[in-house]
Design a protein around this nucleic acid. Structure first.
Lengths: 153, 153
DNA sequence: GATGAAACCGTTGACGC
DNA sequence: GCGTCAACGGTTTCATC
């Protein structure tokens, strides 16, 4: 998969705004509208553009709190790791799940309506799971930077 | 700002796919296409829909590595915290920045092309900054769950 | 395989109810 | 609040190079 300089411009513009007009992109890249469209189709087919999503404000729908949680498993065995991975993935309130090196095995970004809601989440994810040795919670006071943006050009 | 059950359906569908057809949403919600369109406009105006973005594969553009970094500042003073916040925000390779409670002050999700690239980032962000007392890096082995999805109904 | 033109489909905004 | 319609942008197809 090779990405040309004009592809980078296309990706940058669509990352910023998925509804960017093709004509604007064409002007910016010096390509024709038809070519821009084909490039976008190819970038999607190649998996460079994975999806196009609306970014929803958690607060607007009642998720006022964000947590960063570190999880240590009892045994670092593939089956245990996979089992926890699946569980975290299935939980809607777990926004992101990272399998990491270092003291902890996993880091999670989780959303909750309030503290009680978070406590219930910890019961589902950690207390009811004998694989989980311990977990530590950091409350997120401010999400200074959000999104999944990738540096492009 | 009140969110009706049909608004939740709209948000859920657009979060999944920003290009979901209005007609499909109308069928799913039992609303007319025109109403769906108005709801979406209102949800954007209210800030419930913050933006629509293409999700780019970091690997496709050469960012093969992800890091989770904890940063401790020398003094937990507002001006120092704000200064670091701004710096992290301005750095394209910092995908997310969280101001958190607990041992560390900040947690960052950062992208790098390779280890050398990451090392350079640490120089820009941490070593050149006398505000930064220390930082710890976890390498992300697997991004099990990505995105900024919010639980919706 | 890449390009441009044209027909088709979906979205947007204005108008009227 | 609701639907209708015209204008606009996006998508597909096709002819051409």
């Amino acid at each position: 998969m090779d990405i040309s300089p004009s592809d980078l411009i296309i990706l940058r513009m669509l990352q910023e705004n998925a509804r960017e007009r093709l004509e604007t992109i064409a002007t910016e890249t010096g390509l024709s509208v038809a070519t821009v469209q084909r490039r976008i189709r190819n970038l999607k087919a190649d998996g460079a553009i994975m999806s196009e999503n609306a970014l929803i404000s958690p607060k607007a729908v009642g998720y006022a709190m964000t947590f960063l949680v570190f999880v240590e498993l009892e045994h670092e065995r593939i089956d245990q790791i996979d089992a926890f991975r699946r569980k975290a993935k299935a939980e809607a309130q777990v926004q992101q799940c990272y399998y990491i090196t270092g003291e902890a095995d996993f880091a999670l970004i989780a959303l909750a309506r309030d503290m009680e809601d978070y406590e219930q989440l910890t019961h589902r994810l950690f207390f009811q799971d004998s694989n989980v040795k311990r977990f530590r919670t950091s409350v997120v006071m401010d999400r200074t930077k959000v999104g999944m943006n990738v540096p492009l050009g």
